[in-house]
Design a protein around this nucleic acid. Structure first.
Length: 412
RNA sequence: GGCGAGAUUCCCGAGUGGCCAAAGGGAGCAGACUGUAAAUCUGCCGGGCUACGCCCUACGGUGGUUCGAAUCCACCUCUCGCCA
């Protein structure tokens, strides 16, 4: 089979690479033919969020390069909880919760990767971790680990201050064991992950060498923060979820459109599959033109997560709401009975009903700040009424701040 | 197991009997300026409501002292440090 550009080069030029066990060896491995490589995903929530998008995209590129991605959703390790980079002990999840999370996350990854067609694999490490026998594990696997060495890792040092339970201390052994299992079962030779996973990844390559005498490799991605120093994927309303029920494609699109200018270039490389020539030319845009780059970023990111149709709708809706182009039907819209506006409807109730604010109290704060509009009319008081006079040809635009808009349509 | 220190709102961090929904900073939201950007300045910033007032919930947990407790007492839980 013919391979295009080396996957390693792709990672490098798109900004995915932080550390690698052996650049030359990995390049060679990838050059030689299709390779299985894996990344572990934490099943601690019902949905993945924008913070886990970097590893997901790394697998997307891997699949596109003709290799075989393996997504390990840690049903087994999830029972323990990775202490890396955490300052406090993780809450342990029940098996049932993990099961539900696992199914949801696998379905979500399935939007990015081709599990159905067999180009990518999704596996649950509970398969080999749950049956483990303690004594056998200690004897066969545990003997390869040096406590002295583990204690010297930066990942554990932090926790040495705060306290680290024995359960968590064992996490690294299990992740290394995952790698070993994947090496044996699927010939997996490469593990990738966030840079906080470095220690765990290297532990896996060591274990494979000791147990199998085999050579495996690891590489890590930089841990992303936005230009303002925030963790990726957080907004006022919470995480930027990849699940359409938890965050609509329209809002997802808006999230990417509103990123800081300084992040656009980097994000285009990481979160789209646009060719690098295009990424570079978009990144070169200056001033107000940066918005064109953001449009591309938002569209591509939304397309990958929610599909072409949803992305188009999100874009058209956003255009309609903010620039008068696009299609009004694709922006958030609520249809109301004409009758209720004859006598008038209280603004605060209206804003709550269409979901622009979460409660009347929130509405009151918005009004006090001067951030609410019905059409061109600024709302200052929660007792104001919205009547037929506020509608133009049966429609009215509600605004909450500069970035949230909602369309009302009269019926009857 | 012993001794010492500690647990405050999304995060950091003040607060030692009423003036405490709790200083200050960060984050966030809103306004002005802009490009649905940044920086800057201004306002908001536990929640709800029949809203210039009322009602819930909150300073690790439980109980107590008091007219009144984040603040005092007792016990418990967890964390950190030293010792075993």
């Amino acid at each position: 089979m013919s391979m295009g550009k080396n996957y390693f080069e792709i990672l490098k030029e798109r900004g995915f690479l932080k550390q690698c066990t052996d650049e030359e060896a990995v390049t060679g491995l990838l050059q030689a033919g299709p390779v299985s490589a894996y990344i572990g995903f934490d099943p601690t929530a019902r949905s993945l969020h924008a913070g886990t998008l970097v590893p997901i995209m790394a697998l997307v590129h891997l699949e596109r390069a003709g290799h075989t991605p393996i997504a390990v959703v840690g049903g087994g390790t999830g029972l323990i909880g990775d202490p890396s980079g955490k300052t406090e002990q993780r809450q342990l999840l029940s098996r049932e919760d993990l099961r539900l999370n696992f199914d949801a996350i696998r379905a979500q990854l399935g939007k990015f990767l081709d599990f159905a067609g067999g180009k990518s694999l999704a596996v649950d490490n509970a398969e080999w971790i749950e049956p483990l026998n303690y004594v056998a594990f200690l004897r066969d696997i545990g003997r390869h680990f040096s406590v002295n060495k583990m204690l010297s890792y930066e990942a554990y040092k932090q926790r040495m201050e705060k306290g680290l339970s024995f359960v968590e201390f064992n996490y690294q052994l299990l992740q290394a064991y995952d790698f070993l299992q994947l090496y044996q079962r699927h010939g997996c030779r490469l593990q990738m992950g966030g840079d906080d996973q470095w220690g765990n990844i290297v532990a896996g390559t060591d274990l494979i060498r000791r147990v199998e005498g085999g050579q495996a490799h690891g590489l890590t991605f930089p841990l992303l923060a936005t230009a303002t120093g925030e963790k990726m994927g957080k907004t006022a309303k919470g995480a930027v979820w990849l699940d359409a029920d938890m965050m609509s494609p329209y809002d997802y699109f808006q999230y990417w459109l509103n990123v800081d200018d300084r992040d656009v270039s980097r994000f285009l490389g990481l979160f789209t599959v646009l060719p690098m020539e295009e990424v570079r030319s978009l990144s070169a845009l200056q001033g107000a033109k940066v918005r064109a780059a953001k449009q591309a970023l938002a569209f591509e990111a939304t397309r990958l997560c929610h599909g072409e149709d949803a992305a188009r709708k999100a874009r058209d809706g956003a255009l309609a709401a903010f620039s008068g182009e696009g299609c009004l039907d694709d922006m958030p819209t609520t249809t109301c009975d004409r009758g209720e506006f004859e006598s008038g409807v209280r603004v605060n109730e209206l804003f709550v009903r269409v979901g622009l604010v979460s409660s009347k109290g929130q509405a009151a704060k918005l009004f006090a700040g001067g951030g609410a509009f019905v059409g061109e009319r600024r709302i200052k008081d929660h007792n104001e009424m919205v009547t037929l006079a506020d509608f133009l040809e049966g429609e009215a635009m509600l605004k909450a701040g500069k970035k949230q808009r909602h369309r009302l349509i009269l019926r009857g």
